[in-house]
Amino acid sequence: MEHLELLLRTIFLYLVILITFRLMGKREIGELSVLDLVVFIMLAEIASMAIENTADSIFHSLIPMLGLVGIQIVFAYVSLKSKWFRDLIDGRPTIIINKGNIDEKAMKKQRYNFDDLLVQLREKDIRNISDVEFAILETSGKLSVFKKEPKGNGKRDHSKGDITMPLIIDGNIQEENLRRINKSKDWLLEELNKKGDLQVKDISFCSYDQGKMYVDINNK
C-alpha cells in the first residue's frame, strides 16, 4: 500500500509540474532566466519532499507550488511590460569583443574569463579570436559571435554602423546604444519625425543598422 501511495504521489506531482511548466511558457533550458531557474529548482525540491513525506497531505505541498507559479506568472507579465524590470531580473547582453578588440572590463564585470571565451568560440568552430568582429554574451549565458568579413566583399559598410543596435525598446530610448553609434536623442526624434511624426511611447521596437532604421509600432 505504501508503494502504491508513492507511485500515485509521483504521478500526481509529475502532472502538476508538467502543467506548471506549460503555464510558464515555452523556453529552451539554455535560455531560462534567473527567475525561471529559481522557480524550477524550488518546485523540484517541494515535489521531492512531497513524495517522500507520505505522512503529510500532498495538498499541503500544492499551496507553495501554486504560490511560486503565481509569482512567476506575475513577474513574467511585469517583465514584458517593463524594460527596467526585465534588465533587473535577467540582466543585459554584454559586448565582450567590440570591433575586434576584447573588452576586459566587461569580462571582469560579468566574471567571465578567457577560458570561458575560448570554449564558447570553439563551440562555434572559431579557432582564432582575431577572426571575430563582435562577440556578445547574452543574458542566457550564450555567446553570439559575428565574424570579420573579408575586405572588399561589399557586404557591409562599416562607416554606417557595425552591428544592429536597438534604439527604442517598449517605448524607452536606449541612450547607451545611441552613444555607441555616435548619435543623439535629438537625431533619433528627427528621424522618427521623418517617418510620420512617430511618438517614442508608441514604439515597441526600433533598431538601427547600416544607416537603415527599423520601427515597429506597438499594436496593443
Rank of each mutant, 00 (worst) to 15 (best):
L167H: 05
I97R: 04
S140P: 02
K183W: 04
V119P: 06
S184T: 15
N128Q: 12
K142Y: 02
E149L: 12
S159T: 12
E190N: 10
R156S: 11
D197A: 07
G141I: 10
Q110F: 05
V119A: 13
K148Y: 03
R92Q: 14
F114R: 15
S184K: 05
N128L: 09
E149K: 11
K124I: 08
H158F: 15
R122D: 05
F114Q: 15
I181G: 04
S140W: 02
G161M: 01
N182G: 00
K151W: 02
I95C: 13
K201Y: 11
N172L: 14
E123D: 15
Y112D: 02
E175H: 12
R111N: 06
I89Y: 12
P150S: 09
E138L: 07
A135Q: 11
L118I: 05
D125I: 10
D186I: 11
D115Q: 11
S144N: 07
N101T: 11
I89M: 15
R180T: 04
S144H: 02
E104P: 05
H158V: 13
L117V: 10
V200Y: 01
K105V: 10
R180N: 07
Q120N: 03
K185C: 00
D87T: 03
S130K: 12
L88I: 07
E133Q: 14
H158S: 13
K105H: 09
I136A: 04
R180K: 12
L188I: 01
K99V: 09
N101S: 08
L189Q: 03
K151G: 03
E123V: 09
I97F: 05
R156T: 12
R179S: 09
D125C: 13
I163P: 01
P150M: 04
N98C: 04
I168Y: 02
D186A: 15
K148S: 03
